[in-house]
Nucleic acid binder design. Structure first.
Lengths: 336, 336
DNA sequence: CATGCTCATGTAACCAGTTACAAGCGTCAA
DNA sequence: TTGACGCTTGTAACTGGTTACATGAGCATG
């Protein structure tokens, strides 16, 4: 009998009674310890320890209006690029006393809206979106509640939301321009699904913007299998490109492995360019030349920005992170 | 002026007033709509929509005692094996109406305790641990509060916590036994840090348990760089092994890439075996033979188990998932 | 026409905290 | 001795929901 009642988590009143003080005093010991007399304080603290009392976060939240957690929406965790981003984001938030709730959307705008709504419902104080052609309903939701929301993985100073990210057009242009500088005039671009993915669309636009290079586009699922399929398409053509530019390292690595299996040399037969700069890119054979996207810094910046926003109400300005061309050994210099 | 007051999120009382009903009726419309007269219900629902009312999760939690989220502690998000696990876990939880709060511990037992405490503090209903030599304090914390906690990434029917995972001893044994069956008698085992990582220790034990094979161990950081370093060690020896068994695919891929860079054939010069079966393992060149660890199923199982636990109070039984030898092309059959 | 029942709704207590305000107490100066 | 002040503590209202219980209307039945 006693055991059962003992099981229930102790609350403020229990502590107050056991310590022979009022609930206010206990609350003060927790929040403003220096306003209570040392003797009382120590007594209360002992009782708290004895009863293993933990204040209910929900009850606190109801008063302060602060839940101290933010939600992040990412398309998937299965691509290292997002995992890497979240990893940096989580550490940064943790250092600010905030927790991170993760939801995956699978690039589905409707699912994104639902999950966003759900995150807000359960009390997230802010939202961090990443890289999806967000459904208009989502903007309505965010705007109507003026909910602290940050968009990442792209940069757009004009957009309705503050963005922290890189310019995907630039990134792709930088990669293709590099290929051009190395003498490539015919390039195959391999990219993931375009539907409901504005980052990919921007990259295509960036690739197109480079003049003097003839480009063909291959849209495939964003996976190793997809990459292999793209390569099949490329090989089946009569007039082959000299370089393959992949809009994601996952695709580049898929292409690379398939080429090796076919016994085709990189950069001998094809030059190969990636984008993202996943950790593995430095360790492939040959090491992959790729456009580095600063996702770690993006995670840190997003974490800091949202923390500031929640703490001081300072709405972050759009924050642009520069992609960087990382030259390794997968692209050959073509002499004319 | 009006704008400012409009900004405040509407609450139950506001809705009740605007709809000309009592708070109880509004609450009923939300929770048990069929106990409210259709006319009233529709009226209230319209007002709710007008005011964009969203019930506060905190206030609900305070009554029901349920926050509807669970915490997961993983060493890192930068290894695909954990990201993959979390991905499955998150989908499963979402389907059960639960959210997932992610914390990373970097294999640091003290940090794990801190983060666990913090997760419980902020109201997590359950905890999912994975693969770390958990500090004794953590057990005290969990046991003293009989907090719903699940351990994953290993299997131990005797342990203090319900476990859902594979037997790491078995997994390693299976891999080394396979090498033995293929005629290998001298094997280099490459593994990550042993300190505060009981899974790695178990794998070493499993490798040792195979008789008739001479094994040397190489402990390195769990990264591509670490793998390269291990290979350097192996190559510097006078009597080289015929096979390299890596206790993680990350290491295996690191070794593979380094071997390629050195122009050494796999499985010609060395046979190579991995563990985890990351998606990329099927796409390396040559495709990597590896011990498949069912992390996706583990994520799903853990999600279901904790949901059941919270819903019905059914404490899950230890749940064993079988590793599986995946034979691809990186291990050569040695004739005697 | 009175009684009993069901159905819809309202009142108020309750959850576990925070906090404005009041009050008790001791100390010191006038 | 009295009043002012500061320090510590307690009372009770408040946060935003849920829900036990009470109330009252509408209808069928005796």
């Amino acid at each position: 009998m006693r055991d059962v009642s003992d099981k229930k988590r102790a609350n403020l009143r229990d502590v107050a009674k056991a310590a022979g003080v009022s609930v206010a005093t206990v609350s003060r010991v927790l929040n403003t310890p220096d306003t209570v007399a040392p003797k009382t304080r120590e007594n209360v603290q002992r009782v708290i320890a004895d009863l293993k009392f933990m204040p209910s976060a929900a009850a606190r939240a109801i008063n302060s209006g602060r839940t101290r957690f933010v939600g992040a929406l990412v398309p998937t965790l299965d691509n290292a690029i997002f995992a890497s981003f979240l990893s940096a984001l989580e550490s940064t938030l943790a250092a600010q006393g905030l927790s991170l709730v993760v939801s995956t959307t699978g690039e589905d705008p409707q699912l994104e809206v639902d999950k966003a709504r759900s995150l807000i419902n359960i009390g997230a104080e802010g939202l961090i979106l990443s890289g999806v052609a967000h459904a208009p309903e989502l903007f309505d939701l965010i705007e109507s509640t003026s909910f602290p929301t940050l968009a990442t993985s792209f940069f757009d100073p004009e957009g309705p939301l503050p963005t922290i990210g890189y310019d995907n057009i630039d990134a792709a242009e930088m990669g293709i321009q590099y290929l051009k500088d190395q003498g490539h005039r015919k390039v195959a671009v391999v990219h993931g699904p375009v539907a409901s993915n504005d980052r990919t669309r921007a990259r295509i636009e960036g690739a197109r913007s480079v003049t003097g290079v003839s480009i063909e586009f291959h849209e495939v699922p964003l996976s190793f299998e997809g990459a292999a399929r793209a390569l099949d398409q490329i090989l089946s053509q009569t007039e082959r490109p000299t370089a393959i530019a992949c809009m994601s390292d996952v695709l580049a690595i898929g292409v690379l492995q398939k080429l090796q299996r076919l016994g085709m040399a990189v950069p001998g037969t094809f030059s190969l360019l990636g984008m993202d700069d996943l950790p593995i890119a430095a360790h492939t054979f040959p090491p992959l030349s790729t456009v580095h996207l600063p996702v770690k810094r993006m995670g840190t910046a997003a974490g800091m920005a949202i923390a500031q926003w929640l703490e001081n109400g300072t709405v972050p300005k759009a924050h642009r992170l520069e992609p960087r061309m990382v030259v390794r050994e997968s692209v050959a210099r073509l002499s004319d």
